[in-house]
């Protein structure tokens, strides 16, 4: 059995949700509190579904994998961005406040449009392998070799799930709508590291060598503090800034 202990005293959680439905002209942003009996090993995924099924079927939120790997359920949990699906209520106080991630367009209640934001970032930074002849690839031939350690290094940066927590935690992103965020800068370091990508530093500089890119970062480190995948974001940004400064 899982070893997550029951809370010593059975608790009634008070879950306060910042609610607003932009589709409803009558809706005004408001805080609504729901009471939920805490259960063993309860996550916010379980609690929010229970609220929707038993108390308020109009409550909007996003879950997909409910296993911490798809990045759908980023929200502000007691003031900090995090993945709701893997947040255990026993780690939270009895009073829990949930709000949608800032910096993304609100769809309703706790649901925000990270998809459009991330697609825009990917298009702008061209987050794909740039290589001559990809469309005329000889797929019958052996694959190109790669050093095992390098493949693992690339995967370290590839683990990003585009949940948006780093953007929500970023001071610059709140002030500059066009800031690509740690998620975007991490993509640049990932493709820069990859020998299959033929882009030069000068080309990467053209993508992020400005205030909406790597020079917009104020080194507040919120991105790294709240990254659910513990990606070394601050190190990547610092590294990229040095490279870009010397490229300029």
């Amino acid at each position: 059995m899982n070893r997550i202990p029951l809370h010593p005293v059975a608790r009634t959680l008070q879950i306060q949700v910042l609610r607003h439905n932009p589709m409803d002209p009558a809706s005004k942003p408001r805080l609504q509190t729901f009471e939920v009996e805490e259960a063993d090993a309860m996550t916010l995924f379980i609690a929010l579904n229970e609220i929707r099924e038993q108390q308020d079927p109009s409550l909007q939120f996003d879950f997909v994998c409910r296993g911490g790997i798809c990045g759908s359920c980023g929200m502000i949990i007691n003031g900090r961005p995090g993945l709701a699906c893997r947040t255990l209520t026993k780690d939270l106080p009895q009073r829990i406040t949930l709000a949608p991630l800032p910096a993304f367009e609100l769809i309703g209640d706790l649901s925000v449009d990270t998809g459009r934001w991330m697609r825009g970032m990917a298009e702008r930074l061209e987050t794909w392998i740039h290589s001559e002849g990809l469309e005329r690839l000889d797929v019958d031939a052996m694959e190109q070799v790669m050093e095992p350690a390098l493949a693992e290094e690339i995967y370290e940066l590839e683990r990003c799930i585009e949940c948006g927590c780093c953007v929500a935690a970023c001071g610059t992103a709140q002030m500059r709508e066009d800031f690509v965020g740690a998620v975007g800068l991490n993509q640049i370091t990932r493709f820069r590291l990859d020998p299959r990508d033929e882009r030069t530093d000068a080309e990467f500089y053209a993508l992020v060598g400005n205030e909406s890119g790597v020079f917009g970062c104020m080194t507040l480190l919120g991105c790294e503090d709240y990254c659910p995948k513990n990606l070394p974001l601050a190190t990547q940004i610092a590294f990229l800034r040095r490279r870009m400064a010397s490229t300029a």
Binding site: L137, V139, M146, A151, E152, F191
Partner: peptide
């Protein structure tokens, strides 16, 4: 095998033989 080699060229960081 063709599919995996295509994905390798497209950027998947497959673990490699050491």
């Amino acid at each position: 095998p063709k599919a995996i080699r295509e994905l390798a060229a497209w950027g998947v960081p497959w673990n490699r033989v050491e």
